[in-house]
Nucleic acid binder design. Structure first.
Lengths: 348, 348
DNA sequence: TTGTAAGCGTTATCAC
DNA sequence: GTGATAACGCTTACAA
């Protein structure tokens, strides 16, 4: 009476309500409760009600870890992105996460800072969670990452870049076309002396493709490409200022400038303004990214808007299709080329 | 000879290399390989080498799902945040994720859009993954969420808000003090007629606390608080314009305006500029948030910078301490009050 | 320091 | 449509 019996539990245990407890409570087998969650249509109406009641009463939360172990595939998707807080990728993450969550999948997130090594380490860590799929950025990975991805035998999506010749599902746009669009927009407006300001940050290969698109378009119009390269050590905003100051002192000077991104363009805009330049009359300015501040500048910034949000949505959609959570119309779509949009404002 | 033996595997299997295979390869027991990863100091040097060789050769990736099930606690941390892509939270997520990753923990992320319902659903989903800890935003949760958190029996951190009276670990700052700082900054500069422009978005309770801090400070200086409330339907940028236009038509008009956030302030700045107002001579402007564009405006925007990045770092640090991954100096720290910083630029 | 045995909570398999 | 049973790959408990 006084001696409390030794705890019968031989080991640990999360202390949480389990599937079996729900089953006992509802007077059914454990597997039926499992089906109730995963293939409800295979459970009769009567049992469904009893199970639902037990679930609610006990406050049961399915253990995804156990489920993942048993089925060798969990309801998580890993995403490795260069950085989380940048204006380009943040909307992608947001929409991707939301789309997944709507269908019961969770997002595992890590950033690579454009380092192949960090990317590989993130991919390796994610694989330990038996993810249902993996999302990586761009097509440039270390050999180790490629090997891990190939051996993982799960759907892989590459976003924010577009290389039709590569095997994984692709969701993205063509940076080259961004350069083409920007140049064409200015040519159509009658500008004839169009310069391009490169990104000061090394390793931004996408920006180089935009430059190439610009150069080809200008050349096709019988004009000379004119590329300005800022000092490598400058922050984008400062680099933009430097570029604008330098270009305005040339003779002749350009009548329009395409900046590799909106940060550079903002610096250019400000430098021009401080120098008493009228924009766009004296010199038009076009950026890339449609960062949130683009409409807040004076003059507001004409820029090219990448389909950031759309990329996340489409990537999620393709994956959910392969999971069977979303119906597939016709053939599964491996290549998803999305459009960028010229946002015409005051600066050009 | 011609009949291939039936697959001996009775069931599925991820096909991946397992701990036991590594153990067999290294000629040790499985548990020793487990220790090699979790308490390497308990494994002799010789075995360590053999195990390391086997791990490398086989390309073993630990199965976190199995580990999580066995230990009832996984190396993931769930974070629920109002939105991923906003300028305030993005740096927090970034630094939190990075800090965790450095110690082998992964981030599960979901957004709530300020909806208690969505928050609860995210917390419930995360609990299914046996997270090592959970991070939620602010102190305002549904009863269901509170119950889930209480019963989960894992460390919980509330960020971006600071309510010393609440039980969970807190990491954040005081919005009230932001209002105080802004008002004091302007008072010190000699401004005497200081208005405050509220956020147009309903439900931004933090902004109201900033307003209260402003009001109390101005009042303590013997001046009259002056609060402008923009139309509720306007986007922040437009609401800022509206506020500036309205206030400049008053007689007398304010000589300084504190905006509830930088988006509003940017709108105000632009409206003032278009109206030919000299800023800060005719009217000073202060914002909140130090959004990336603040330094790109003309005049550049004086604002208060919240410790977004620091919040993520400190939250991660506190959790890693409780996990034992980080040494604790003295008492575990439950309350972490961080400072905001006045970023003095041209507009005030 | 190392190993053996058991079990974590779920789902795949197969039988009814 | 429903259930019994055996994995899934790892870690805790305990023993040597």
């Amino acid at each position: 009476m006084s001696t409390s019996p030794p705890s019968p539990r031989k080991r640990r245990g999360s202390g949480r309500v389990t599937l079996s407890e729900v089953a006992r409570h509802a007077g059914v087998g454990a597997i039926t409760v499992s089906r109730f969650f995963n293939q409800p249509e295979q459970v009769s109406g009567e049992l469904r009600e009893r199970i639902q009641a037990a679930v609610t009463e006990l406050g049961y939360v399915p253990n995804r870890v156990a489920g993942g172990l048993a089925s060798a595939r969990g309801r998580v998707v890993g995403m490795v992105i260069p950085n989380i807080s940048g204006p380009i990728f943040a909307p992608t993450i947001q929409s991707f996460s939301d789309s997944l969550a709507r269908h019961g999948y969770q997002l595992l997130l890590a950033s690579s800072y454009f380092s192949e090594e960090q990317e590989e380490s993130a991919v390796r860590a994610f694989l330990g969670w038996s993810p249902a799929a993996l999302v990586v950025t761009s097509h440039f990975h270390s050999a180790g990452t490629e090997k891990l991805l190939a051996e993982a035998d799960i759907p892989v999506v590459e976003i924010s870049d577009y290389r039709p010749e590569r095997a994984p599902t692709q969701v993205g746009f063509l940076h080259y076309e961004v350069g083409v669009s920007a140049a064409r927009y200015l040519l159509d407006k009658g500008y004839r002396s169009i310069a391009f300001v490169q990104n000061s940050a090394a390793g931004d290969f996408s920006a180089l493709e935009r430059r190439d698109g610009y150069a080809a378009t200008v050349q096709a119009a019988g004009l000379e490409p004119w590329v300005f390269v800022p000092s490598a050590d400058k922050a984008p905003f400062e680099a933009g200022k430097q570029a604008m100051e330098a270009l305005m002192n040339r003779n002749p000077r350009p009548d329009a400038i395409i900046f590799a991104n909106d940060n550079l363009a903002a610096g250019g805009l400000l430098a021009g303004q401080r120098a008493g330049l009228r924009i766009p009359e004296d010199c038009a300015v076009v950026g890339f990214g449609d960062y949130p501040f683009a409409e807040m500048l004076l003059p507001s910034l004409t820029t090219i808007k990448p389909p950031s949000r759309e990329i996340g949505e489409v990537a999620a959609m393709r994956l959910l299709e392969t999971f069977g959570a979303l119906p597939v119309e016709g053939e599964p779509m491996r290549l998803n080329l999305l459009d960028c949009q010229v946002i015409a404002r005051e600066s050009a």
